[in-house]
Design a protein around this nucleic acid. Structure first.
Lengths: 148, 148
DNA sequence: TTAAATTAAGATAAAAGAGTCTTAAATAAG
DNA sequence: CTTATTTAAGACTCTTTTATCTTAATTTAA
């Protein structure tokens, strides 16, 4: 698994908010139920996104979370950075410290390309783009059966 | 981390055996010390490789492990398969079950390529090739400083 | 035959990741 | 003002991965 479960939950939740939160706050309970994510666990994860200025939150009745900025300006890598950190894009596949051009591991050449490609994908993919793509193609962001 | 720590240990140990085990058994203690891997932990991992017919082992004094087949005939994917399983090459980046051409997640298109590329790399890279490359270029398979 | 070396196997422990539960604080609405 | 709703925060539990420890079994060689 490239991303931690927390990070996957964060991305899926952010997509849900992008797609369903136009103009108002979305309650974490709703997100948790719709995406089949443990509520309290998701609460913590979204708190981290809020701390990292990717979301804003609002307490109390009618409270919830919302994107902190325009959906086209938030790319997935910001979420990954907040939850899993950027080290996952630098890590040596054989776990050797300071693996790189200078001191490569035997697999460095083979892996550096795909790793950069993954990083680029996360850099270039915005919540806005991905939410639109998800809607247009009726893609799913939950394992749950689609409810009308 | 794409591969588990166990899997990384397995690959590095297999490379060490390939490079240093010509014709005879290499003791697990030696591998563990040279590669800075916990001995008992490595023992279990190599037992798994032995159970999967990738290595043979020999008990008692002068015992150790050796490759079960010619080094050019063992590709990294066999080690990955034995330790982490093949699911890591099928897993959806967003953790959705049955993500694929039929029921893709929003990131499926972006990820399917790199995932296949990683898989191909492990399929095509043999222990023989990698050990030779490691020797020729003086690459390292351990975090430890190189000892004369 | 005995001692040393070495893998095999199983129990246990430590660490990290994932998930749950409870209480506090804030907000809206009656 | 009170109640219901909702996020914040912290403690706690569970599971998986990683690591350690002990004993058994096997083999070599003195």
């Amino acid at each position: 698994m490239i991303l931690s479960k927390s990070c996957v939950y964060a991305i899926r939740a952010a997509l849900y908010v992008t797609a369903n939160g136009k103009g108002s706050y979305v309650s974490i309970r709703e997100i948790a139920e719709k995406l089949d994510i443990p509520f309290h666990f998701l609460t913590k994860i979204l708190q981290t996104l809020t701390e990292n200025n990717l979301m804003t939150s609002f307490r109390g009745a009618k409270g919830g979370v919302a994107l902190a900025r325009a959906e086209e300006s938030i790319s997935l890598i910001e979420i990954v950075k907040a939850i899993d950190g950027m080290d996952i894009f630098k890590e040596c596949v054989l776990g050797l410290p300071n693996c790189g051009f200078d001191r490569p591991c035997p697999l460095h050449d083979e892996m550096v390309g795909v790793r950069d490609q993954i990083k680029q994908t996360f850099e270039q993919t915005t919540l806005g783009y991905l939410a639109k793509k998800t809607k247009d193609n009726n893609f799913r962001i939950s394992a749950l059966a689609i409810s009308a």
